[in-house]
């Protein structure tokens, strides 16, 4: 009962803006890529693109949970590094293909612990999440290097790389279907369902919107907040499995992904410091981000120009969202 009261403003709010501009952006960008490179219209073209974006999209969807609850998670990149370079490859030095089946659950377990610690530090030690997860990022990177000695100790077996690398061929209509794309659809749906179709999702929005009010309305603020960090860390592990599968073993896999995930959420219209955000729009944000890079690549713009464009889009997206909100009278 009480939870519904807390969630009611949220329901009416989501109806207002109409079509989220991020979808228009994605369509426009994909069209532009297609015009410049017709091969993109072939299944191998767009499937490769989706395969490439899967890790970031899943990661952003998880990061959104923390953002909607009003926090930040800067530790996702280092969670990927730790679980992949260390657990994934170092402990698999025996190259035993069967170990994948217990290694992935183990990695998820470590993700769970990382998320729990983040959540507990933020909730009970009252450390702002920016600092708590920054500290966690530095610590985890150090642990990863300490443990592995600075370089990965083994290879990732093919059974592990299956999720990020393998394509199912001879699929009717589309020809090839990368496993990573299936993962994207499955986890994207789960994340969408959790955020937009459950009571838990409504509580998440409520504590991000106004923690005091949420508490008064009976929302278990601490527990919900901790769970958001856990979701974020778990998706970081999943994204890591896909990314590691795609690229293979490397030293600092995942570094820089924390800011990209936040960027994707922001392009998708999520409001930093909480209360607003949509999983599909965030995934579209990730698609847009990757599409921008692909497009700039196609045009042949130099790396520095890409940085400038990324910066302008970031500021522009948020400024536009604020403007729209103001015009809508909120």
């Amino acid at each position: 009962m009480t939870e519904q009261t807390a969630a009611r403003p949220e329901v009416s709010r989501r109806r207002l803006p109409g079509v989220n501009p991020v979808y228009v952006l994605v369509v426009a960008l994909l069209l532009a890529i297609f015009i410049m490179n017709p091969a993109f219209g072939e299944p191998t073209g767009y499937m490769n693109f989706l395969k490439r974006v899967a890790a970031l999209a899943i990661l952003s969807g998880g990061a959104l949970y923390v953002i909607v609850s009003g926090g930040f998670d800067l530790s996702v990149g280092s969670t990927m590094t730790l679980t992949l370079t260390v657990i994934g490859s170092s402990m698999l030095a025996s190259n035993d293909p069967n170990s994948t089946y217990w290694i992935i659950p183990l990695m998820l377990g470590i993700g769970l612990v990382v998320g729990l610690i983040n959540g507990l530090v933020v909730s009970y030690l009252k450390v702002p999440s920016l600092i708590a997860t920054l500290g966690m990022m530095i610590t985890l990177n150090g642990v990863a290097f300490m443990w592995s000695g600075g370089a990965p100790r083994g290879y990732l077996p093919d059974t592990f790389r299956f999720f990020g690398r393998f394509n199912i061929s001879d699929v009717p209509l589309i020809g090839i279907l990368p496993v990573a794309v299936i993962c994207l659809v499955v986890f994207g749906t789960i994340l969408w369902w959790g955020m937009h179709r459950t009571n838990y999702g409504r509580m998440l929005h409520a504590i991000g919107d106004n923690p005091q009010a949420a508490r008064l309305a009976g929302v278990p603020v601490q527990r919900v907040r901790i769970s958001a960090f856990v979701v974020s860390a778990l998706t970081a592990v999943l994204a890591g499995v896909i990314l590691g599968g795609r690229g293979g073993v490397s030293v600092d896999i995942g570094s820089g992904y924390e800011l990209q995930a936040i960027t994707a959420a922001v392009i998708g219209g999520a409001q930093l410091l909480g209360g607003r955000g949509s999983v599909p729009a965030t995934i579209a944000g990730a698609l847009a981000l990757e599409a921008i890079f692909t497009l700039l690549n196609l045009i042949g713009l130099a790396q520095p120009v890409r940085l400038v464009v990324q910066g302008l889009i970031l500021i522009g997206a948020v400024a536009l969202a604020t403007y729209q909100r103001k015009r809508a009278g909120r």
Binding site: L272, P304, L307, Q310, G311, I315, T322
Partner: peptide, 20 residues
């Protein structure tokens, strides 16, 4: 423009880095 300072300065950072 009421852009969140984190995003505003992150964007600024990318722009400066790119130009530089």
């Amino acid at each position: 423009l009421e852009v969140n300072p984190l995003i505003a300065t992150l964007g600024m950072s990318l722009i400066i880095q790119g130009v530089l």
